[in-house]
Amino acid sequence: MAGKGGIEVEGTVVECLRDARFTVELPNGHHVLAHISGKIRKNFIKIVPYDRVLVELSPYDLDRGRILFRYRN
């Protein structure tokens, strides 16, 4: 739901977890459990620790998110 009303925030991947999920640290120090968006998956974009990413926070649970975009170095 990129750009469609969700809360989007930049963060840094700090850990790759099992089940294709990631821990992302937000600028305020908050950690979010995030999975990757379908667009990233379809484009075979790999996410690794220290990547800067754009995360959409879940409107149902602000501890969960979806990685919408991975920034270039």
Binding site: K4, S37, G38
Partner: peptide, 17 residues
């Protein structure tokens, strides 16, 4: 959100978030 995109080879790939 669901998307259907067409790859350069013509195949249609789906995704759902």
């Amino acid at each position: 959100r669901g998307e259907a995109t067409t790859r350069p080879d013509g195949r249609v790939f789906l995704s759902v978030d």
